[in-house]
């Protein structure tokens, strides 16, 4: 055993001391600032608490019952999964196509494209929010002025102000900012495929398209699966940031997602107990979704 052998290198008293100094400070801070708030979050969800008073009233499952009575909750869940669906579809589609193009075509400019496509992944959600809010700005933004090139009258659509459009308008920024990373992930898979496989496919008369569907896709299925799960998780756990920055859940809750609603209920309406119950709901839904998808995708791998 490596541990036994390494242990013998040092005197016993020094060794114990060393373990404590190296392990305990990190773990103590981690327990206080990460584990404790999470456990406490579950605990708080059984109380009625405004946050400002020290009085916490135990109310059992009432906060959870409230989840079922609250008309906004089903809408937030629906909005979250709307974003999940479109992000998964569009990001995976673009990321896979670009990954293939940048690896298989052997273009001179592929390093350039790779660097450019990845860059939006680097910038903060705040910057993306500010930038896209302006792109969508009805009078000054360049989306409307672009569309106006094709119409007689100037277009003045309030993309983020229209409750029918606002949620869909949140998809492009998320896709724009998300593609690069998953593209790099899938590229690493493609670069691991041996060139001789492609050669023998060519000899068998498989065209580019057939090589793509029969060879590339099955062999990078693992990367695609990881990407899919990662998009689902990060969307369910983090979509509220872009929502909060671009629409604050409005207009009229038409873009409210679970996380942004939690923030509003907790930090604007001071219903801390109810807010943490929403947090537990997010945890449960994201875990359930991941487990379910893992099952589904595993079955699909066998079919290949």
């Amino acid at each position: 055993m490596i541990a036994e052998r390494n242990k013998k290198l040092y005197s016993k008293g020094q060794y114990t001391w060393f373990l404590i100094v190296f392990i305990v400070p990190t773990f103590a801070l981690f327990c206080l600032l990460t584990l404790y708030p999470m456990v406490r979050g579950v605990y708080t969800s059984f109380f009625d608490w405004t946050g400002t008073s020290s009085k916490m009233t135990f109310i059992g499952l009432d906060n959870y019952r409230k989840l079922f009575d609250d008309e906004i909750i089903p809408r937030t869940i629906q909005h979250d999964y709307f974003l999940v669906f479109w992000k998964v579809l569009l990001i995976l589609l673009f990321a896979t196509v670009f990954a293939v193009a940048l690896t298989r075509l052997k273009l001179r400019e592929s390093a350039f494209f790779r660097a450019v496509f990845f860059f939006p992944n680097m910038i903060s959600v705040v910057v993306i929010g500010v930038l896209w809010r302006f792109i969508y700005n009805p009078n000054l933004g360049f989306l409307n002025s672009f569309l106006s090139l094709f119409t007689e009258k100037p277009v003045s659509i309030a993309w983020l102000g229209d409750s029918d459009l606002a949620l869909a308008a949140l998809v492009p920024p998320s896709v724009w900012a998300g593609i690069g990373f998953y593209m790099v992930l899938i590229m690493s898979g493609i670069m691991g495929i041996s060139e001789s496989l492609y050669e023998s496919a060519r000899i068998d008369g498989a065209g580019e398209w057939k090589q793509f569907t029969r060879l590339t896709i099955p062999l990078v299925w693992e990367q695609i699966k990881v990407s899919l799960l990662s998009i689902v998780m990060t969307t369910l756990n983090g979509s509220f940031l872009i929502v909060w920055l671009m629409t604050e859940g409005g207009p009229d809750n038409s873009t409210q997602v679970m996380g942004s609603y939690l923030y509003q209920v907790g930090f604007k309406q001071y219903q801390m107990g109810y807010a943490t119950a929403i947090g537990v709901m997010i945890l449960v839904l994201s875990l359930l979704t991941t487990v379910l998808l893992n099952r589904l995708l595993r079955r699909e791998t066998h079919e290949w």
Partner: peptide
């Protein structure tokens, strides 16, 4: 894997 927002209020 756990959503950070779960611990936000207690934190």
């Amino acid at each position: 894997m756990i959503p950070t927002i779960l611990g936000l209020v207690p934190l």
